[in-house]
Simulated scan of single mutants.
Amino acid sequence: MDEKPFETMNVIPFVDIMLVLLTIVLTTSSFIASGRIPVNLPRASKSVAEANKAVIIEMSAAGNLYFNGTAVTLESLRTLLAPIGRETGFVIRADRDISLQRFIDVADLLKQLSFTKVAVQTKSSN
């Protein structure tokens, strides 16, 4: 058998592959470095913060319900919420040991009355 040793190696296909890989790495690294696609956002004047404070609904571990610090029942809460504007914000402060059903009852009541600005206050785990 007559085998010839490699005298030269054709590196042009290897260079082409490396250039494609380099292009891919450089393109994706610009997205990774900024964390998002760069967008030049339009400017607007700062808006004035709303004067309305959020209404606080609290639920104690014993299952008691409070509306702005006053003890209420679920039925009386419905009557208290009815005249309030639908753009009012609510903060629900619920004890971690309450029944899930009790929490869902209050959240469902707010949904039935078409309130959309509802937040649940939590404590940081730090």
Rank of each mutant, 00 (worst) to 15 (best):
L80A: 07
R102D: 05
A94I: 00
L77P: 01
N52I: 05
R93T: 02
K46S: 03
S60R: 04
T27A: 12
S60D: 10
F90P: 00
G63A: 12
D105G: 01
R93A: 03
T116D: 09
N10H: 10
K111A: 11
V106A: 02
Y66V: 00
V25A: 09
F31G: 02
I37R: 09
A61Q: 11
G63D: 08
I57H: 00
I12L: 15
M1D: 03
G35E: 06
M59A: 03
M18K: 08
A71R: 14
F90R: 01
M1N: 06
R102M: 08
R43I: 05
L65D: 00
E87N: 13
V48S: 11
V55C: 10
P5E: 09
A51E: 15
A71G: 04
V55T: 15
R78S: 14
D2E: 14
Y66N: 00
T73Q: 05
P38C: 04
S125I: 07
I17R: 12
T122P: 00
S47G: 10
T116Q: 13
N64W: 03
V106K: 00
F115D: 01
S45E: 11
D95N: 15
G89F: 00
V20M: 08
N126S: 13
A71S: 14
E50Y: 03
K123Q: 14
F31V: 04
T70S: 14
S99F: 04
V120I: 12
L41N: 05
T28M: 12
N10L: 10
L80N: 02
T23L: 15
P38S: 08
A54V: 04
I92L: 15
V39S: 07
I12E: 10
L74Y: 07
S76N: 10
R36Q: 14
V39Q: 09
K111I: 01
A94Y: 00
I17Y: 12
S29I: 04
S60G: 09
D105K: 06
M18H: 05
R36H: 13
V25K: 04
S124D: 13
S124Q: 14
